[in-house]
Amino acid sequence: MKRLRAIAVLAFVAATSAWAQNYPARPVNLVVPFPPGGMTDAVGRPLADGMRASLGQTVVVENLGGASGSIGSGRVAHAASDGYTILLGIWNTHVSVPKLVKLDYDVVKDFAPIIYMTDAPLLLTAHRSVPVSSFKELVEWLRANPDKASSGSAGIGSPPHLLDELVRKHTKTRFQTVHYRGAGPIMKDLMGAQIQMAFLNPATASPHVRSGVIKALGVTSAQRLKILPEVPTMAEAGFPGGMEFSLWSGLYAPKGTPPEIIDKLNRAAMDALASQKVRDLYAKLGLEIAPREKQTPQALAELQRTEIAKWWPIIDAAGIKPQ
C-alpha cells in the first residue's frame, strides 16, 4: 500500500511539473479589484501589456471593484491555483481591509505572493472652490465650517479613509468621509465639487492639479514628488509629526499555485517593469518601481507582514471600527 501511495504521489508531481512547464497555454486573467480610472488600473494595464512578450500569451485585465477591493480579491482567493487568475493587490486589499471588513478568505494564508512592484504616496487635494491654498488654511477652514465638508474615500479601510481619520484626530476638525468604489468615481465627484477634498494617488490627481481644477496641499512622502515639486510634504505643510504613507502594489496568485508558475509570472512581471515604456509611464504617474532585488515573492510577503504590524495598531488608535 505504501509503495502504491508513493507511486501515486510521484505520478502527481510529474504531471504537475509537466503542466507547469507548458504554462501558460491560454490567456491569463489579471483581476484589478477597483474600477477603471484609478491608480490600480493605471498600474495594471501597462503591466499586463508588458508581460505578454515573456509569457507568450495575452494578460487580460478584469476590473472587479466593490467592497473596498474585497470582491475582486475574494474572486482570486477562491480561484483555481493554476496561474490563470491572478490579482493586482495593494495596501488596501492586503493590509487595512482584513482589519476592518469581515472576509471569507485570509489575506496572508490564501494568496501566493508573486512580485513587489510599485510604491506611491498620496496627495491631499481640494476642489478649487475651497478658499484655501495650504494645509494650514484648510484646517482653519474646516474648523470654521464643522460638518460641512466632505472627503472622498476608496472604501472602508482604504488609505484615504485612514488618513481622513488621522487628519480629524490630529487637527480636531469635523468633516464627512464618503466611501466610493474606487479613485475614478472620487475624482469625478471632486472635479464636480460634489465633495470638497480627498487623498488621491498622483496617477489620478496630477493631471487635474496641473489644469487647476483641483489643488494639491500636501504629499504623504518623505520627499517632494518629481512630477509636482511645488507640492510640500505633509510634514512641510504642517501636519503634526508628519504623515508618511506609501500605497504599494504587488501581484498575487491563489495559494497552492505551483512554484514553477509563480516563477514564470515573476519573471514576466520583472521584464515588464524593466521596459523603458513602463518605467517612463510609471514615472509620469508619480509611481516608484521597487528595486529589482526586491521584486520577489519573499519581499512582497515580508512587506505585507511589516505593514500589518505597523498599521493595525494605528487603525486601533485612530478608533476606526470594523464594519
Rank of each mutant, 00 (worst) to 15 (best):
R3K: 13
L4M: 13
A6G: 05
A6K: 04
V9L: 14
A11K: 07
T16E: 15
S17E: 15
W19T: 13
A20E: 06
Q21C: 11
Q21L: 14
P24Y: 12
P24W: 14
A25P: 11
R26L: 11
R26W: 02
P27W: 14
N29C: 11
V32S: 00
P36C: 01
P36Y: 05
G37I: 01
G37Q: 08
M39N: 14
A42E: 10
G44F: 02
P46Y: 08
A48Y: 02
S54I: 02
Q57K: 13
V60E: 15
N63F: 03
L64T: 07
G65S: 13
A67C: 12
A67T: 06
S68P: 01
A77K: 04
A79F: 04
A79Q: 04
D82E: 07
G83H: 05
T85F: 00
L87E: 00
T93G: 13
T93V: 11
S96W: 01
P98L: 04
K99D: 07
L103Y: 05
D106T: 10
V107I: 08
V108L: 14
V108E: 11
F111T: 04
I115E: 06
P121T: 06
R128D: 03
R128P: 03
P131D: 07
V139R: 06
V139G: 08
W141C: 04
R143F: 11
N145P: 03
P146L: 03
K148C: 12
A149R: 14
S151N: 09
S151Q: 14
S153Y: 01
A154C: 11
G155K: 00
G155L: 04
G155I: 00
I156C: 11
I156W: 07
H161R: 01
L163W: 09
E165I: 00
L166F: 09
V167T: 11
R168E: 10
R168Y: 09
R168V: 06
Q176C: 05
Q176M: 12
R181T: 14
G184E: 00
G184A: 06
L190C: 11
M191Y: 13
Q194K: 15
A203S: 13
S206D: 04
S211A: 13
S211W: 05
V213G: 01
I214D: 00
I214C: 03
S221L: 06
A222F: 12
R224I: 05
P229C: 08
P229F: 04
E230Y: 08
E230W: 03
V231E: 03
P232A: 03
P232H: 06
P232F: 00
T233H: 02
P240W: 02
G242C: 04
F245M: 12
S246E: 13
W248E: 03
S249G: 15
G250N: 03
L251K: 06
A253G: 11
G256H: 10
T257V: 03
P259S: 14
I262V: 15
L265D: 00
A269W: 05
M270W: 09
D271E: 10
L273F: 15
S275N: 13
K277L: 11
L281G: 15
A283F: 08
L285W: 02
I289P: 08
P291Y: 12
Q298A: 15
A299E: 04
L300D: 02
A301R: 10
L303A: 09
Q304F: 01
R305L: 09
R305Y: 10
R305S: 10
T306R: 14
T306Y: 12
A309L: 13
K310A: 12
K310Y: 14
W312S: 05
P313C: 10
D316K: 13
A317L: 09
